[in-house]
Amino acid sequence: MTLEEAQNEFTAAAVEFETLIAGTPVPASNDTTFWSRLKTLAMSVLGTVAPMSAGLTMRTAMQAVVATHSVIKKLADATGNAVELERYARVMRGLTAEYTALAEKVLDQSEAKYAPIAERFKSAAASLKEAYQKAEQLASSLNLGADLLNAFGKLVSVL
């Protein structure tokens, strides 16, 4: 994946996150504090990360997701309100899914590097087996030669 594609991925992730926050139903009555906190948090994270997006890599995008997740976890730890908790949980799980998607892209980048190395190990294993078989074969031939000479020696001593 090119840097440009990575940036596009991150932008898409940021938009998705923003949509997720915006799409969360507006609280009915008593949790306006929660809503404003979450919105402020989301805006602050996006506001911090957005100016850096030109230089962002997949890994820094993942770090941003982890940082956001960590802050929301702290908010979730601090409340015992079911409505707040449910929304925090939903956002956290959305972020984890986003992290996994980004992580899979990172794994894809290194995937091609494994095949040639694995091939070289397979080839080394084959060479080791071949060397061992050749050594055993040579030992067997030497033993056969010794048997033949012993038999011949008996014949010579009789003569």
Partner: peptide, 12 residues
């Protein structure tokens, strides 16, 4: 693959 290499090494 690394493990197969290790096993071949063990025998050799």
């Amino acid at each position: 693959a690394l493990s197969a290499y290790g096993n071949a090494l063990k025998k050799a």
